[in-house]
Amino acid sequence: MRPFAYERPESITVALSRLGDDVDGAAVRPLAGGTDLLTLMKADIVAPHTLIDLKRVVELDDRIEMTAEGMTIGALATLAQIESHPDIVGSYAALAGAASQAATPQLRNMATIGGNVLQRPRCWYFRDPQISCWLKGGDSCPARDGENAHHAIFQDSPCVAVHPSDSAAALIALDATVRIRGASGERAVSAGQFFALPTDEHRLESVLGPDELILGFTLPAPAAGSRSVYLKAMDRKTWAFALVGVAASVTVTGGTITDARVVLGGVEPIPRRLIAVEELLHGSVPSDDLFRRMGELAVVDAQPLSQNGYKVDLARALVTRALADATAPAG
């Protein structure tokens, strides 16, 4: 690992100004739990010369609070805090489920939710310092015709890596808002808008500016009759990134679906919200047949690569199952 300076400011203004000093956005980076950033630095994928530790910044915290409007979660809340918080377990089951199925207990004790949604892809070409790839600024993507069993099944970006975060899909399904602070003040972005497919000009997975920080997340109070779930398929029973994950939040009123948000993870460089599925669910009566058709609809546009056709089957099955789980009679 290359040498770097470590700073621990107590005010967000100082932290933001240090980030703002850095013109290309790569040399000064914020540090939360470090479980992704330090791994990338050790592998020489990123090489900031300065790390700004966020842990002492008074405006940033790990508080999880239920208010009249809903839930607020500080950016520094760890996945361990989230998975075990009674209000999250009770009212935002998809998020608790996503957090609890991520990584390992040790990692969840360190990993923050702010860092979780900003973690970089696990694509093994990306993570290998000896290999050049498009997302790292290279010309082409070696995964597209290479070892791509874990890669994207929807082709909307030059990059076919998948977003590794479990929580990201859950936050979108729960209609979360990301609270962001930059030098010019605060802004709020819906979780659905926060992630953006990497493009030639912007080879990153989110709209967060290099000189901005995530303050936290706000989740609306759950509607009466709503339930959410997160299902994750892995190569083994635990300690693995999702092959496919699905977060679904469904509201049923008087036997009819009145609201639904369904998000697939593990299928492209950012979580994929299934708008067409959501629209069709709206006003429908829950049934196995309906959910099976939704599973089909979820993957109609899929274009699997040479080794990942199985993920289409997996996505179809998990969407069907998640909808059934989210609407199954309680008890």
Partner: peptide, 11 residues
């Protein structure tokens, strides 16, 4: 897992 084009072990 080996990428046979590159001759490299990926995992």
């Amino acid at each position: 897992v080996v990428d046979h084009r590159l001759g490299m072990v990926m995992n």
